[in-house]
Design a protein around this nucleic acid. Structure first.
Lengths: 218, 218
DNA sequence: CGATAACCGGATGGCATCGTCCACTTGACG
DNA sequence: CGTCAAGTGGACGATGCCATCCGGTTATCG
């Protein structure tokens, strides 16, 4: 344990070169996490950023700190996707678009799933962004159900389930051409949306009860 | 590289103590793979089996050899599940039972998904068992489609997709109570079966084309 | 029972990653 | 322009895993 993060200089007040390096590190981490997942060695990130490991560790004492910093952006991007979907006049289309887009983000960024599904209790900004995303998704669910287009027994946990499932596809097809992976994901998502849609007696064949998962399941 | 496996003594002709240890190692590996996945250190398996690492390496020169040896059993178990399902008079029920059972096996054994979805070209027995499983599953698909219960555009690749997806759920919920994980898996499987079932104009909303996956996709 | 080849397990060297330390460099400010 | 605190990078020890080697042990057979 090195420095208490709360007494680390606020990113804006760093010396010019330090701020510059910080930016380079974040960019490098974003690329490397996307390409190779969250378990990539720290040295690889440092090398890609063109700095020494010490600089990386000084600015981000923990892998977790770096991960949350990187993915808070992606997560707010995710929130804006959800907000756009909430603007969609047709609630069902809004729901579908949001789900499809988030799953596409999952496939494009190999670290996204892990970051999204893991809880980082000490990362305030990150958790706030995720809270926003979750709130928006819940609202999308509510509206789609109110419009009678989404099964009444659908819950947030089912969305988590899809994200985990899609993450599994992403992981398993990681070293496959990207087109194959996205095609696979698209088909999975389409199937799930088909399953969750109403349009006939939804009670004719009830699904098993929703598992007790929240976004903070870990 | 130590000994050519083809000139290793056939398991049956080992000295009594060696054969005994071999059995213990396989049992230990089965347990450890199930509990902690395929990436577990070799030393952990040796310790659990009550032998030294050298013994482990002598009998199974490569992790791959050990994995395939262990999971060939599971795979033939899988084949027998499929065969039972083929005996089921209702083709749709047979299909569902097979899918549900295999997915349950995936959840019960943390290494199963990885072993099942990875190709081991040099492991003849393993690949043969997998070929049998695949053949049976194809037949189940064919029959369910012939009975008009399974969408005509369903393919083997969709089954692979489900196995990957289910593996993702298993991985993400690995350190969760087993009941939660199985509940989640059950719900995922039920949703997928709902999506693939026919019973109304299947062509009304075509799924995206099946991704080009086979069992040997890696 | 004795010889011997098969077998055993711990010790060992090699490799990758982690996270820290320290001698040197450089931006900011008077 | 000179000072110095902030910043830098590479070297380093620690750790964990892999895979092999070797001195001692034991099952098997005559």
């Amino acid at each position: 344990m090195s420095a208490d993060p709360s007494q680390m200089p606020p990113a804006a007040k760093l010396r010019a070169d330090a701020r510059h390096n910080r930016t380079r590190i974040l960019a490098a981490a974003r690329e490397v996490f996307a390409a190779r997942g969250l378990d990539v060695p720290m040295a690889a990130i440092a090398r890609r950023a063109g700095v020494g490991v010490a600089t990386l560790y000084r600015r981000f004492p923990t892998r977790t700190v770096l991960i949350t910093e990187v993915f808070t952006d992606q997560l707010t991007g995710c929130v804006s996707v959800v907000d756009t979907a909430l603007g969609e006049p047709d609630p069902w289309r809004g729901f579908c678009v949001a789900v499809e887009t988030v799953c596409r983000m999952q496939m494009a960024d190999r670290g996204f799933t892990g970051a999204f599904l893991t809880a980082f209790p000490e990362a305030v900004d990150f958790e706030r962004a995720r809270g926003n995303a979750e709130r928006g998704l819940r609202e999308l669910i509510r509206r789609a159900q109110a419009a009678g287009r989404l099964r009444a027994d659908f819950t947030m946990a089912d969305l988590m389930l899809l994200f985990m499932a899609n993450g599994g596809v992403a992981a398993e097809l990681a070293d496959q051409p990207a087109t194959a992976a996205t095609a696979a994901s698209r088909r999975l998502v389409a199937a799930m949306l088909t399953a969750w849609r109403t349009e006939r007696a939804a009670s004719a064949d009830p699904l098993p009860p929703a598992p007790p998962l929240t976004l903070h399941h870990i």
